[in-house]
Design a protein around this nucleic acid. Sequence first.
DNA 1: TGTTATACGGAGGCTGCCTCCGTTTTGCAA
DNA 2: TTGCAAAACGGAGGCAGCCTCCGTATAACA
Lengths: 196, 196
Amino acid sequence: MTGHLEPEKETSSRKPRADSLRNREKLLVAARDVFSAGGAEASLEAVARRAGVGIGTLYRHFPTREALFQAVYSREIDQLVELAARLAAEEPPFDALRHWLHAQIRMVATKKGMLAALNPVFDGATEVFAAHQERNRRAVADLMARAVAAGAIRDDIEPADVMRAVIGMCYTRDQPGWQDTVIRLVDVFLDGLRIR
Amino acid sequence: MTGHLEPEKETSSRKPRADSLRNREKLLVAARDVFSAGGAEASLEAVARRAGVGIGTLYRHFPTREALFQAVYSREIDQLVELAARLAAEEPPFDALRHWLHAQIRMVATKKGMLAALNPVFDGATEVFAAHQERNRRAVADLMARAVAAGAIRDDIEPADVMRAVIGMCYTRDQPGWQDTVIRLVDVFLDGLRIR
DNA sequence: TGTTATACGGAGGCTGCCTCCGTTTTGCAA
DNA sequence: TTGCAAAACGGAGGCAGCCTCCGTATAACA
């Protein structure tokens, strides 16, 4: 799985070529920009053009559209995972969970175009994304576990399902201020989750 | 808006040609099948092929992809609206709302492929779909109004947002049994909405 | 500095989108 | 019934994106 992410020296004696690494980086940056702006209909050729490399180079580095999405998306997840750890250390359980879900919404807001592009992917090529979803899931799971231990929320709802619910709620046509709406809806949901 | 749905005699003195009506019907049936099965990536050419008409004929009847979606989708909404009326007449307010939302989920389940295809549309060509969404929204609004009047749920959440939340929750990759999951999540959400 | 593995880039084949227009069909009037 | 014009038909064709393949360029290593 990490074969593409971290070139393995053991396979070949040679070290990876400098231009290869450079192009890979250029492609990732270009992809992030293009997907963020253009959304689902963004063309891979546009990504290659923006990166200033040939379409062939793009396909060599990222053999499928999903592989490219995955690589770009990976970094975003990193940030969220880190935030979860920080919140868990700094806030009471329920608040930590709530604030982290709000952060998730804000992240979706920024990367909306890209996430829209990702949606079909979630349905299709699952194995590739499993790891990222899993990391994300574990972040919520930790936060939820703490809240459950503190007797703040019910314990019969799967973390993965909470993620699904929250991300799903972001999939609405965006009128100005939709983030606030979603935050409210998530708060209602959390209210249903809460033990009073 | 209904110009395409019901050919208006007033515009022209002639009555619509029989083959035109026939082809229109064939296209609608074909589109429903193709979108249900194939989802977002369904090609319009495939629809035309299945209907046994030329691609030009498809585009004349439905100048945009959205117009075609809209026509197909319209019938589905009809059913839901009708169901809402029946439930309102037959069940207590909260149960009626709950059961109707469950029906909505089931409907999405059946038409999943088609709805996936619709998602980008909701973002883009809004005017076309406004009417359908509005009819749907009004159905929930009625059910919610009854529940509010009965003191069963809080009154500060917009019906449209409830729709958004429920439909959003359906946008998850489908593992076997996802409908049950979503029904549970919606129940949690309703719990948050409830006044106890 | 030469050799070779490796990466580059874009041409090309394919498919889908949508338009345009010559041909066919149908409604209507005589 | 027949003839004609309005209306609908269907598919060719232009364009764009997807992905593959391979001749050329270049970086690593001896």
